[in-house]
Write a protein that binds this DNA or RNA. Structure first.
Length: 347
DNA sequence: TCTCGAATAT
DNA sequence: AATATTCGAG
């Protein structure tokens, strides 16, 4: 009996914590009210639901309690768990996720972290929570996933969810924007890989990149957009911004049109070089005169830390068969010269 | 019609 | 700043 009660208390407490978590979550996504109205709605409903359950639980007698302990643990808490676990577990059911991963968590917070900057890291974390799962999943699956978590929680919500999903879809078809694709570091790494294989950002084409990335659900437009950004950042960052202080920064080398930390490059750790047999350009140049002509010696622009644009370019090492020569036809106006063939060797 | 890159919008 | 959307060109 006592056991039961304490058990129940425990469940209540857990539920309480869950509610808190939800409320915090809600606070966070409130910022995106416009973009995620449904999310907010869902979270709100979840909160209410839990609150309701918790009060019912409190007032109920032992039977109610035991029921609740099943409800709370069976309905309430699991949701939390699902939300929390989505991040890591569900992400990679995929076949060829090969490499990736490892450094992901490891590298992430090299600078500092503990608890002080809670706000920020917390926020980021929650962003990741939502964004991370998608890289390799088609969007539909994702939203479906989300719906499922909710639906599972309570049958009565099903209509709601469906209705919302429908109206959401409809709305989207009409006016609403696409769900933003978040370029997780993994996704970005794939992007870089593809880029490298294709001979650099200025010769790679969105479609080619997308095909090379082999990421489910990734669209040309998304890649195009990302590529545009990448190119912009890759260009010589305005000289007017003197990186005072940071002059002791790493030296970078352009490899296959990608900025690579010199250390990485010269250390022989060179992941994969783009051996250009191009008639005009030598792809492997030093910073002093990059292949972008005007782009002299700027260290790569600062990318969102997690992007590590100083690519940890990982050439797909997974399948041993890699070593073939890929001939990539490149025609890029950006290169200001005619079509060239790049021979890229993978290792 | 498709793809691209640049410009622009959110 | 990051991503999406639009637009004109090829």
């Amino acid at each position: 009996m006592i056991k039961k009660i304490s058990n129940m208390d425990y469940n209540q407490e857990r539920c309480g914590q869950y509610i808190e978590a939800l409320e915090e979550e809600r606070r966070k996504i409130l910022v995106f009210q416009r973009e995620l109205p449904l999310c907010i709605d869902l979270v709100t409903q979840a909160i209410e639901r839990c609150k309701k359950e918790i009060t019912e639980t409190a007032t109920d007698n032992v039977y109610g309690q035991s029921e609740c302990s099943e409800q709370t643990t069976g309905q309430c808490t699991p949701v939390l768990e699902q939300f929390l676990t989505i991040k890591d577990s569900s992400t990679f059911n995929e076949e060829e996720v090969e490499e990736e991963f490892e450094d992901e968590q490891g590298n992430h917070d090299p600078e500092n972290d503990p608890e002080d900057k809670n706000m920020k890291s917390d926020w980021l974390k929650s962003v990741q929570l939502w964004n991370q799962p998608d890289p390799l999943l088609p969007k539909e699956e994702q939203s479906q996933q989300m719906m499922e978590t909710v639906v599972k929680r309570d049958e009565s919500m099903r209509e709601d969810a469906n209705a919302m999903a429908n109206s959401g879809e409809r709305r989207r078809r009409e006016t609403e924007r696409k769900q933003r694709r978040c370029w997780s570091s993994q996704l970005h790494r794939r992007f870089l890989n593809a880029l490298q294989h294709l001979g650099g950002p200025h010769v790679a084409t969105p479609k080619q990149i997308r095909e090379l990335m082999k990421v489910d659900g990734l669209t040309n437009d998304e890649v195009k957009s990302h590529l545009q950004k990448y190119r912009l950042h890759t260009r010589r960052p305005s000289q007017t911004v003197p990186n005072n202080g940071n002059s002791q920064k790493q030296h970078f080398v352009v490899v296959g049109g990608l900025w690579v930390p010199q250390s990485d490059y010269s250390a022989g750790k060179t992941t994969g070089r783009a051996t250009t047999s191009g008639t005009t350009t030598t792809t492997t140049t030093t910073t002093t005169d990059g292949i972008y002509g005007a782009m002299a010696a700027p260290p790569p622009p600062q990318w969102p830390s997690h992007f590590n644009f100083t690519p940890s370019i990982i050439v797909e090492e997974g399948s041993g068969s890699h070593s073939e020569e890929v001939v990539v036809r490149c025609s890029s106006p950006a290169m200001s010269s005619s079509t060239r063939n790049y021979y890229v060797t993978k290792n």
